[in-house]
Design a binder for these strands. Structure first.
Lengths: 224, 224
DNA sequence: GCCATATGTGATGGAAAGCTCACATTCGTG
DNA sequence: CACGAATGTGAGCTTTCCATCACATATGGC
C-alpha cells in the first residue's frame, strides 16, 4: 500500500522499481529501509551508500536494486515513510477533545513533533535536508499537505484571536520553526525534552499571539 | 589572518595545509573558496567535488590541494569564512544608537540575518547543515560565540521585560528559529523579504514577550 | 512433488571522485 | 638577469561506490 504507481517499469529514478508480491519481499523492503535509516542516524549522509545499506540490512545489493532503482529512490522512500508516519501522528493529535481549548491541541502538536524528531535526531535532520533536494512524489506531497492542513484546522479553532493571521503561512512557519528547535536540541549532548517543550510553546504561542501594536497596551509585558 | 595554526605540516584533515605567502596565492585561495561557494549555491552538495571546484575556480586541482588537505577542509574553510562575515555584520548591527529601544536592535539583527542568508539561500542552508557535521575549529567557534553573545547583549537591554528568560538559551533559540524561517523563504520561488521580515519579528518578539500566564490578563490577545 | 514465478546473491564492470607527484612557471630579491 | 623559493599544472593512480547480470534459491498453486 505504500507504492503509488502501477507496474511502470519506466525510467523514473525515484519511484520504487517493483512492488513486493510476497511477504518475504515486503520484509526485505522494510529491512532495507530500516538499515538505511540506521546508517543515516549513526553514520551520517557521508557513509550512506547502497553497499553499506545492504550490508547493514543483511541482504545483498542485488536485492536492494530489485526494489529501488538507485540511492535517491531509497532516500525518497525514507522521506515518504517518515512523512507518512508523522502525518498519521499529527492526524491523531488534532482530533478535538470535547470542550478543550484550541491551545491544548497546539500543545499536543508540539509534543508530537518533539516525540517524532527527537528519537532519531540525526535521521530527522538529514531527511529534512534531503527533502528539499528531491522531487517529492505524490504520496509524500499528500502527507505534507495533510500535516499542514491539520495544523491550519487547529488554528481555525483559535477563532478571532488568530483572525489577523494568514493561517497557511502561520502553519508552515510554525512547522519549520518547531523542526529547527527540535533539531538543535537533538544535537545537544543531553537533550532536555522538558526545557525544549517549554521553549517551543513559547515560540509557537508567541508567534500566534504577538501583536505589534499591543505591547504598550499590556503593562506586564514591557516593564522596562 | 584566516589561518590559526603555525606551519604544522601535520595530519589535521580540516586545517588548511599551508598559509599563502604571496599575493598571488592568497588570490588563489579566495578564488577557490568562491568557486566552492558557487558550486554549492548552484549545483548543490552532490556536485560539490574537488575537481569541479578547481575547474569552476579556474585553477588546477593541484593548487587546491596545496591549500586544503581535502574536501572537508574546503568545506570547513567556507563555514569559517561565512561565520566570520556573519559575525561581523552582527557586531555592526548591535552597536547601540543613543536613545533607541532594544527592540530596534533586535529588528536590525533580523534584517542582518535576512540579508545574509537570503542572498545565497542554498549555500546558506548547506553550510548550516554541514556545520553540524564538521568539528569546528577555534576560529569558527569564536565567531559563533561572538554572534551569540552579541544577541545576548541586545537582550540584556530588554531589562525587566525579559528578566524571566534564560538569555543564552533564548539567543540560541532565536538564531536557529530565524535561520530556519529564512531558509524556508529562500526555497520559495519568489522570496518575499517584506513578508519574511514581518513574520520573523512576530516569531522573535513573540518568543521574547510571550508569558504563559499573561494571556487572560490581556483581553485583546484572546478574544474568542 | 513439480513448475512457473518471485525473490535473493555477490562477483564484477565501469564511472566518478579523491588525491599525488613530477614537472613547469612565476615571484621576489640581490 | 640569475637563482632559490613559492606557486601552479594536470595526467593519472587509487579508492569508493553505483549498478548489473547470470545464476541460485524460495514460494505457492496445482
Amino acid at each position: 500500500m505504500a507504492y503509488s504507481h502501477p507496474e511502470g517499469r519506466g525510467r523514473d529514478p525515484l519511484s520504487p522499481r517493483k512492488r513486493p508480491r510476497q511477504k518475504r519481499s515486503s520484509a526485505t523492503v522494510e529491512v532495507i529501509l530500516d538499515g538505511a535509516a540506521r546508517i543515516l542516524e549513526r553514520e551520517g549522509l557521508e557513509r550512506f551508500n547502497t553497499n553499506a545499506v545492504a550490508a547493514v540490512a543483511g541482504v545483498s545489493v542485488g536485492s536492494l536494486y530489485q526494489y529501488f532503482p538507485g540511492k535517491d529512490a531509497l532516500m525518497a522512500a525514507l522521506v515518504r515513510r517518515d512523512a507518512g508516519r508523522f502525518s498519521a501522528e499529527v492526524a491523531a493529535a488534532v482530533v478535538e477533545r470535547p470542550g478543550e481549548d484550541w491551545r491544548a491541541a497546539v500543545s499536543r502538536l508540539i509534543a508530537v513533533a518533539v516525540g517524532h524528531q527527537l528519537d532519531f535526531p540525526n535521521l530527522a535532520r538529514i531527511l529534512d535536508f534531503e527533502e528539499a533536494r528531491l522531487p517529492l512524489d505524490d504520496e509524500t506531497e499528500a502527507a505534507e499537505r495533510s500535516i499542514l492542513s491539520a495544523i491550519v484546522g487547529v488554528l481555525r479553532r483559535g477563532g478571532g484571536a488568530l483572525a489577523h493571521l494568514d493561517l497557511s503561512q502561520a502553519a508552515a512557519d510554525l512547522l519549520r520553526l518547531t523542526r529547527a528547535l527540535v533539531d538543535a536540541e537533538g544535537r545537544e549532548r543531553a537533550p532536555d525534552r522538558e526545557s525544549l517543550s517549554r521553549r517551543l510553546e513559547r515560540a509557537v504561542f508567541g508567534y500566534l499571539t504577538w501583536d505589534a501594536g499591543a505591547e504598550s497596551a499590556c503593562p506586564n509585558l514591557n516593564a522596562t
